[in-house]
Design a protein around this nucleic acid. Structure first.
Lengths: 236, 236
DNA sequence: CAACTGCAATCTGTTGACAATAGTCACCGG
DNA sequence: CCGGTGACTATTGTCAACAGATTGCAGTTG
């Protein structure tokens, strides 16, 4: 990460706009930028050491990705995800990933897909037995990205990129609390079902996988809401 | 069009960027801007009578919609859709619209969905009997947009917006040549199947609908390729 | 005659400043 | 005490100019 940043500063073969976009996206999904907080163009511009132009471009991109919310003449804000949003993210994921599974199996490229998928599941299992839940969470997402990648559809992949970012947004970091017993196993089941050409079986496991994730997130969100949260603008 | 321009000059209630975006989008989907051609920022700016800022913003929006292709430090181009692209667009559409159908039926909001869907099908049938193929094509797309809208999923809707734009891009204007006998009827079948709660039936018709569209587009593309086309850069 | 190197033109990327709109807040009057 | 009106401020929309990069051409050299 350091090397990338350093080379970016010295030799911006990538544009400032794309750099700012990446940095902002990372800050949003890893939680550095708290949901609900406002992002000022001038503030970001000075903090990044660039002009408003690239910042403006980056903000616009992220708004269209759904990672930021823009209120005209008010400002852009980090979105606060409601229960409906969480549900909706998983509706979108199911749509995309189901299509990917169908596409992979029907096109007969299951073998190459399973190879990378299995590798990731093995990684997950290792991280799980090591109790490294953060890695489990990251590899989890990698698995699903690899799944959609394997479909070979640029558009599925493109759309999934934004949705997976939103997933990260509402996921934060995975902790031991969120880990279900069958979280890792479900990935193995999906990969195996695909390998066996059992389309319906794979889709069923995927759906269960998402349903479980949603209830876990809902429950966590409920506990956060119940807690005397750090209201940003309540008692100012 | 004149009125819009005039009001825009005097009272820009909409921003220049959004105006340029609309105009460009229209030019792209209706074919005024030939695929493969480069769009110069300064050229567009002068032709629209605005600065490069708004033009740049408009171009960026369209790039993210998939209606334009950007090569860093090179410029933005109107994409040339290959057969794989056409296929991929319909893979993406099937993913999204299938999910929409499932979501609508399972959430029991089929009644309200069918109402607007039926209305559009009726419009299509009228246009068809009038031989107005352009209207048939437009209402066709409206039908599918309404279908995804009815799912009530903001993310499905957002993703579909870009894909439907790409569909327009590879569709151009519908002519009598492209019109299949069962084109309009299939929409009625989808709506009816949904109304009856026949999920699998609706999905099957949708798939056939897309498969037919793809072969039609492929055939047309093949004929275009075969024709001694106006190669833009071949014989310079 | 072909290939390589250097230059120039043209485009994008970026900047800083200006202008206008909308939201906010304080003040005044009823 | 409450409502309206005014100015103020923050943010966005827009512009013209500058800088960096890429492409194509021309001149030169093997």
């Amino acid at each position: 990460m350091n090397a990338e940043t350093a080379s970016a500063v010295t030799i911006p073969r990538a544009t400032f706009a794309s750099i700012v976009t990446e940095r902002l996206r990372a800050s949003i999904v890893n939680g550095s930028l708290k949901p609900g907080s406002q992002l000022s163009e001038v503030e970001l511009a000075t903090s990044f050491g660039v002009s408003r132009g690239p910042v403006r471009e980056a903000l616009q991109r992220l708004v269209q990705e759904g990672l930021l919310h823009s209120e005209p003449h008010r400002g852009v804000f980090v979105p606060v995800l409601t229960d409906e949003d969480v549900l909706d993210v998983y509706v979108a994921r199911e749509a995309l990933e189901s299509a990917a599974i169908r596409s992979i199996i029907s096109s007969g490229t299951t073998a190459v897909a399973s190879e990378s998928l299995d590798r990731l599941v093995t990684l997950m299992e290792k991280a799980e037995s090591a109790g490294d839940w953060e890695t489990v969470g990251n590899v989890d997402l990698e698995f699903h990205v690899a799944l959609v990648d394997a479909s070979g559809s640029p558009r599925l992949k493109r759309m999934f990129g934004t949705v997976i970012s939103e997933t990260r947004l509402c996921l934060g970091v995975l902790t031991a609390d969120d880990a279900r017993d069958d979280l890792v196993e479900e990935h193995r089941l999906i990969s195996d079902a695909m390998k066996a050409g059992e389309t319906e079986q794979a889709l069923a496991v995927l759906k269960k996988h998402f349903d479980d994730a949603v209830v876990t997130l809902m429950r966590r969100q409920a506990s956060v809401d119940a807690a005397p949260g750090k209201g940003v603008e309540e008692l100012s």
